[in-house]
């Protein structure tokens, strides 16, 4: 059981929860994740640790309400409890310190850049964060992100804030030719198509690029093998070998395909949940 101490709505469907989990907060490193279960007979889902506070024993997670479990989690209020939370799981990204690192975040993945990029800066890196969303009001944690890096770049599809276009288009401008902003490392966290596009953008440029994969998983300790991904022709378990991998070696076709394994079941369960909510309302 872990009590939710603070809750903040970042967008209508994106919630930030600060959860009391002192053991996890004590050992968490930037880039690791937790697995949560929200109710009896509930499923286990992995969520990136977006921040931690060792002194207060708090762990921050950001959840986007897209399915049954994330909706249940998003519906919890301050003072209520998450049934099960375990972690920190996975390994932090392996990036050498020194030089310029760009963190690219899409959607709620932007939140994961908070402690990752703060840590890079503390290690002496020059840091740039590029985050994107469809429109201005869907950009999350802008002030917090600005505070942890040297330079924050906003991108929106409609141009309502910052650069008009995709994060990868902005990234391309920064790495092209002799741009003074050219990084030597890139960290990508967000939806699979975005991470894949980032990988394609930096491929062949000599810029080391890591992507944070979040395949389906159950235990998070290497026991089920459900999270297997192919990296440079080798099968790896994202839960224990990852979640960060060399983005240029990731078999994104396979990863995308595997992420669709339960699309029908997810739709069915989400439908049932909506009906139940409506029935309750009546």
């Amino acid at each position: 059981m872990a009590v939710i101490r603070e809750k903040r709505d970042l967008t209508p469907i994106t919630k930030m929860l600060r959860v009391e989990a002192p053991l996890i907060a004590e050992s968490a490193k930037a880039g690791q994740f937790v697995i949560v279960r929200v109710r009896e007979r509930g499923e286990r889902i992995p969520l990136t640790i977006t921040d931690y506070d060792r002194d207060r024993g708090l762990v921050t997670i950001v959840v986007q309400e897209v399915g049954v479990t994330t909706r249940c989690l998003g519906a919890l209020r301050e003072g209520e409890e998450i049934l099960d939370i375990v972690g920190p799981l996975g390994e932090p990204p392996q990036l050498e310190a020194g030089g310029h690192v760009i963190g690219v975040g899409g959607g709620y993945g932007a939140a994961a850049l908070l402690c990752l990029m703060r840590e890079r800066k503390e290690l002496g890196d020059r840091t740039t964060i590029i985050v994107g969303a469809r429109q201005k009001d869907l950009l999350i944690l802008v002030d917090e992100l600005r505070a942890v890096c040297d330079r924050l770049e906003l991108c929106t599809d409609d141009g309502s804030a910052g650069f008009k276009g995709l994060v990868t288009e902005r990234l391309r401008q920064l790495i092209d030719g002799d741009s003074p902003q050219r990084p030597n490392r890139v960290l990508a966290i967000g939806p699979m198509p975005m991470m894949r596009a980032v990988a394609d953008t930096t491929r062949g440029t000599g810029i080391a690029t890591q992507a944070s994969l979040d395949p389906l998983m159950i235990d998070g300790t290497g026991m089920c093998g459900g999270c297997r991904v192919t990296i440079g022709g080798e099968v790896k378990f994202a839960c224990v070998d990852g979640p960060f991998f060399d983005a240029h070696l990731v078999d994104f076709d396979e990863a995308v395909q595997r992420s669709k394994m339960y699309v029908k079941e997810e739709a069915l369960a989400t439908c049932r949940q909506s009906e139940a909510v409506q029935a309750d309302a009546r």
């Binding site: 109710r39 007979r41 509930g42 499923e43 286990r44 049954v68 479990t69 159950i218 339960y262 079941e265 997810e266 069915l268 369960a269 049932r272």
Partner: peptide
């Protein structure tokens, strides 16, 4: 562990 045989009453498919 996850009682998938009861899906969708249990959440794990």
């Amino acid at each position: 562990l996850m009682q998938a045989f009861q899906f969708p009453e249990a959440d794990t498919p």
